[in-house]
Amino acid sequence: MIEADRLAHASRWRRLPLAEKALLCLGLLILAMALPPWPGAVLVLLVASAGAVISGLTLPTWLRLLAPPCFFILTGAATLLVQVSADGIGLAADGGIQAGLLLSRALAAVAALLLLTVTTPMAELVQGLRRLGLPVELAEVTMTTYRFIFILQDTASAMHASQMARLGGDGWRRRIRSAGLLAAALLPRALDQARRLEMGLLARGFDGSLRTLMPAQRVRPWRLAVIAGGLALMAGLSLWI
């Protein structure tokens, strides 16, 4: 179970047109990248978090989703605290400020992207990419990959449970061996699944393309304008301060 995926399907913003969500989130992402981190990034982080809560997430869930990327960002940012010179390693003069600015920019960017993923199911995102010119074959591969991920995940977790039940997780060497055996057993399962799906789709008239009907969404220009206006306001505000 992938939590962001589950949340996207349960989101209050689930039915909003992709264009609105994409404009808001990608706009926030661009602002996070382009504006000076103070106060731009902080504004973006606040707006994204507010959006998450309005779209139906609880604050603890939102923070839990932000935590792992935050950890990775912290490790990277920590390097800016020190400097290396001929005399050896020392604290960088403005390292704290540099690290803080980097941390806030990255965190704001992560929040902006995360807001998109917890409100928009993958199918809609790929549909959007398709409209932006992603070749149809690649869109189909991408969506079929998405579908297979969940099947294989269930298989992998059953395999893992079975290995643990037979004490395959006891000790470092055994865990490596178990993980290797699992991966080796999973790959043929994945390829088999593909072959069986091909058979199943042939019976449904598969002729090479995987065309389906997408639910139509009506984009309301005034709402796009409001979102764009809001983003512009944020940009203006942070440049002015």
Binding site: V141, R147, I149, R175, L182, L187, L191, A194, R195
Partner: peptide, 22 residues
């Protein structure tokens, strides 16, 4: 055309593998 299913299976496999705890 059937290669898109194989390719998708390989992609999903890589994704699931990369989520495997080592």
């Amino acid at each position: 055309p059937e290669a898109r299913l194989t390719l998708a299976a390989a992609g999903a496999f890589a994704f699931v593998l990369s989520a495997l705890k080592l």
